[in-house]
Design a protein around this nucleic acid. Structure first.
Lengths: 144, 144
DNA sequence: GTAGCTGCAAATCATTTGCATAACC
DNA sequence: GGTTATGCAAATGATTTGCAGCTAC
């Protein structure tokens, strides 16, 4: 239920240690509930504890990924963004090209059609990503 | 019609020069008709003319992108892949996680649903990407 | 001829790794 | 107590940029 607890379980069951750095990074990560870059997360973590290094943030994000609690995305930027994986279903993304904001959505009809397409090629889907890039509601009124 | 011709037009209309390096890079790129990395394209180009540098390949790919004749993708790898943009409609990708092969497809029903979803959020789509990752037909028989 | 190119080497940028010290179990 | 982590600095890999000479128009 609590992702922090899950993370602790993952660490101990893997023979890894639950250090205070890892705990803080994970805590801040799950509290943000957003699509953050390693750098952005590092800045947030630094506010709480400036002694924690960027490298530790990277390493913790990798652990979170391995434990299935975080997912990595490449939204066309040169850096990756990470999002917490909630027990809910898979979802896709609306990405605003103006403000960079990310809105999640899910649509079962689209998923079904994806399966249809894949099987017509004899292809077996493991995962997918659907990203819609454009202008969000808030940015539409603005100049340019 | 001919992408090479379009590229020449783009260059001259932008006050840029149609050097033999650019021509060769573009020629090889369009002949491949695949999703290549800059590095892979560079290797192919080198077979024809080993004096052309990787940097020139990068710069030419950028020009091809700016002219609308190439599109850049990030398929979860750490390097970008580029594909020729044909006058045909937009398409999406099936990416095999075993052999790395990329199969294109298009599906208007999915596109329609995407528009539906977006407008329900007041979002205006500029572009999108849909990528299905999994095992292609050819790799399904193989071990592991 | 001159502005725009090329190739090299060096600079970036995001991310990873080596290593000596420090912290968990 | 010993293995595993941390943080720093340095390495990496992809991509970009500065610059002196080269080339198309």
């Amino acid at each position: 239920l609590d992702p922090l607890l899950k993370f602790s379980c993952y660490l101990s069951s893997s023979g890894l240690k639950a250090t205070k750095q890892r705990q803080l990074v994970a805590e801040v990560f799950f509290r943000l509930e957003d699509h953050v870059s390693a750098e952005a997360l590092y800045r947030k973590v630094s506010e709480q504890d400036p002694s924690i290094g960027l490298v530790t943030v990277y390493r913790t994000l990798r652990l979170l990924g391995e434990s299935g609690l975080a997912r990595e995305h490449r939204f066309g930027e040169n850096s990756s963004r990470f999002e917490p994986v909630l027990p809910s279903a898979h979802h896709d993304h609306l990405i605003c090209t103006r403000c960079g904001n990310v809105q999640e959505f899910e649509n079962p009809k689209i998923e079904n059609l994806q399966e249809e397409v894949a099987s017509s090629y004899g292809f077996q889907i493991e995962t997918h990503r659907l990203e819609l890039y454009g202008v969000c509601k808030g940015c539409q009124g603005e100049s340019q």
